[in-house]
Amino acid sequence: MISPKKYARAAKRLPEGFKTINEFFNYVYNDDEMIWMGQNTNHLHEENDIMYSMLESVKNKDYCKYPPPEGFPELKDLILQDLGLTEGYDILVTAGGTESLYLCMNDILDPTNNVITCDPGYLIIDNFASRFADHVKSIPIYNKECGYKLTPELVRENMDENTKLISLVDPLNPLGSCYTKGEIKEFADMAIDNDLYLLHDITYRDFARDHHLVAKYAPENTVTVYSFSKIYGMAGLRIGALISAPDVVDSIKTIVINDLGTNVVAQKGALAALKSKPEWLGRIRDTTRGNQKIIKEAVDNVEGAYLPVYPSDGNMFVIDLVETGVEPVNIAEYLLKKKIFAREGAYTSKLFGHRYLRVSFSIPQEQVEKFAFHFEEGMKALRSK
């Protein structure tokens, strides 16, 4: 078995030929042949209203003007309508969900607080929380007993009178696990009873088979983080939003640095994305769910490899490799040589990164089929060494 410490050392090394992480990502980004399975981005949108609206915005030179500082009112209304949160909520459009996360942590937390997150999870949340709170309790969830997610029971066992915020990434990056309506209601009751906040990151919501908003049950205690990066395929445009009760959003507005508004071209694309969503959402969901099956067949053909969460309610999941003897770093490097960008586990877990490879599958089917072939091929080759 590969130890976490040994794996952590291995994961810090860059692929051969690269001196910095920025240099590596520049290479991956600019290689037109690269199959992008390493950052959960969506490559399934064809030429549609999203693209055309942004091209028209550029043609009209909209970018010469600053947009409204909190986001176009029409865009704010459409986001709330998309979530079914039309009354008693306010919204702030941000430069991506990541900015929303940072603003929430900065405003809500103080040095006497602690924050509950999970491992595996989106580690930048832990990073942000540690800047403003006393400490972060990252609860291990990589096991069948808890369903590979942060349960209300686990939170109760780990919270105390100084717990101020619980982070729920739902569906969860990197595992693809999702919360039931009962679990969401239980978290809402917990937040109300203990006067704490729930940070509900719903970046992958539209990939899920069934999804429920905490905000509908605990509006005064919930900050919902919304992103256009994934289902809308707009990752590089950096646009998102945060939604909460008006007094919470008013407080967050007092610490905003970017008071001249979010990228105007991105907002025009976001408007078109929300308006056209019924036209393309079903196709993208069907494709990603079909792609999961292709990957599962390949994983089932590799002795010792398995999918802890299947089917995933996101556009990603992890492939556990610990019983194969192949380090995730090594198969990731093998795949990179085949023009396939996947991500080893250290990116999303401090405790379990030595176990798994994370792959996303909101890409064309033929690219997933290429991954499946080279994954099986690569595991066989690496095992023989």
Rank of each mutant, 00 (worst) to 15 (best):
Met190Gln: 07
Ala305Glu: 09
Ser57Asn: 04
Val299Asn: 04
Arg283Gly: 08
Met51Thr: 15
Ala272Met: 11
Ile295Thr: 00
Asp32His: 13
Tyr7His: 12
Tyr89Asn: 00
Asn106Met: 14
Gly121Glu: 06
Ser362Ile: 03
Val329Arg: 13
Asp201Gly: 11
Gly71Phe: 03
Asn40Ala: 15
Lys385Ile: 12
Gln39Thr: 14
Ile35Glu: 02
Val169Ala: 15
Leu168Met: 15
Glu369Pro: 02
Asp320Ser: 05
Tyr66Ala: 15
Lys76Ser: 06
Val248Glu: 01
Asn263Tyr: 01
Leu237Phe: 05
Tyr179Thr: 04
Tyr52Gln: 15
Ile340His: 11
Ile331Thr: 00
Gly38Ala: 11
Phe18Met: 05
Ile124Glu: 08
Ile2Gln: 05
Thr180Gly: 12
Gln267Met: 06
Cys118Asn: 14
Thr254Ala: 01
Glu46His: 07
Ile91Arg: 10
Pro111Thr: 14
Glu377Arg: 11
Asp32Ser: 15
Glu161Gln: 12
Phe132Pro: 01
Asn113Leu: 00
Asn30Ile: 13
Tyr204Ile: 02
Pro68Gln: 15
Ile284Asn: 11
Asn143His: 11
Tyr310Asn: 11
Phe128Tyr: 14
Ala245Asp: 11
Phe371Thr: 01
Pro15Tyr: 10
Gly176His: 02
Lys338His: 14
Thr224Arg: 07
Pro67Asn: 05
His374Glu: 11
Tyr310Glu: 01
Ala381His: 12
Trp280Glu: 02
Lys61Pro: 07
Val223Cys: 13
Glu157Gln: 15
Val58Asp: 06
Asp206Gln: 07
Leu14Gln: 10
Leu351Gly: 03
Lys144Tyr: 13
Thr112Gln: 13
Asp160Leu: 13
Pro308Gln: 00
Lys253Pro: 15
Arg285Asp: 12
Ile255Arg: 03
Phe361Ser: 02
Ser167Lys: 13
Arg205Glu: 09
Pro140Glu: 10
Lys339Ser: 07
Leu237Lys: 02
Ile294Leu: 09
Phe373His: 02
Ala8Ser: 15
Pro328Ser: 01
Asp32Ala: 14
Lys6Thr: 14
Tyr29Ala: 05
Ala191Val: 13
Asp320Gln: 10
Lys338Thr: 04
Asp134Val: 02
Asp201Tyr: 14
Thr94Asn: 14
Ser276Met: 12
Asp126Arg: 01
Thr262Phe: 08
Leu335Glu: 01
Ser229Val: 07
Lys137Asp: 12
Gly88Ile: 09
Arg343Val: 09
His200Arg: 03
Asn40Leu: 14
Asp210Glu: 12
Leu109Asp: 08
Thr222Tyr: 00
His43Arg: 06
Phe72Gln: 10
Phe352His: 03
Asn162Asp: 08
Ala133Thr: 07
Lys185Gln: 05
Ala346Gln: 08
Phe207Asp: 04
Asn173Thr: 15
Ile21Thr: 00
Pro120Asp: 07
Ile202Glu: 01
Thr287Pro: 02
Asp107Ser: 15
Asp126Ala: 11
Lys76Trp: 06
Met234Arg: 07
